[in-house]
Design a protein around this nucleic acid. Structure first.
Lengths: 105, 105
DNA sequence: CATATATGCAATCATTCGGTTTCGCAAATT
DNA sequence: AATTTGCGAAACCGAATGATTGCATATATG
């Protein structure tokens, strides 16, 4: 089972979990209350998120708090980096087109 | 078949296709040459990318050029936005810790 | 007009995915 | 000590996924 962040965020429930615990770590039960599925289903999602290190566990007694590993999210940003240059370029090109249109007038 | 960008970029081959045609649009055959799989498999990936509008087709005779719809990539960036604030905050917190350590010295 | 080329589409198949249900275990509570 | 609570693991199931193979269609080329 090869897990990577891209596959992890492909599922909408997992994306929702990520957003949910972004600001504050939560236990599986607390998380599950926000969804229509069973606690075990959430538990499985958390396992996947843990496997690809998007999430970290902090045991406290019999409770386990899941915390977002925000640094891992940066890997997504890193992948996007290569395209950022392009869409800025295209924007500039559009800019030039507009400038030329103005000149024609 | 509900397609969204997150599911589209979950597959490594599709990510590679995206990167491949980012700078220059290409035909399915040309794309397929870069991979180990069959042309039809690539065609299926292109269909998925087209369905979620990450890619656009330009017919030229019997050839079809596939072009990256760079604007759609921005949606990913938009989703990341909510976390960017967090990881910058955490960086600031770390900054404060370092400042405090200095003071102790 | 016959043939080669570029492409999409449908059927099929093994694998993975996301969910439920059942179970076991350890920590709290009574 | 007995019970409740919070959790993960395993077994199972239907649906989706990614790949292959075979076929159909449209455009070039001889």
């Amino acid at each position: 089972m090869r897990r990577d962040i891209f596959q992890a965020i492909a599922d909408p429930t997992r994306r929702a979990i990520i957003t949910l615990i972004a600001l504050q770590s939560m236990t599986p039960n607390a998380i599950a209350e926000h969804f229509d599925t069973s606690r075990q289903a959430i538990s499985k999602h958390l396992r996947i998120l843990t496997e690809c290190e998007l999430v970290q566990q902090k045991q406290e007694g019999r409770e386990i708090y899941y915390q977002l590993e925000i640094n891992k999210m940066k890997e997504l940003d890193k992948w996007l980096e290569q395209f950022r240059a392009i869409w800025e370029d295209r924007f500039n090109e559009l800019d030039n087109v507009l400038v030329n249109l103005k000149k024609k007038k």
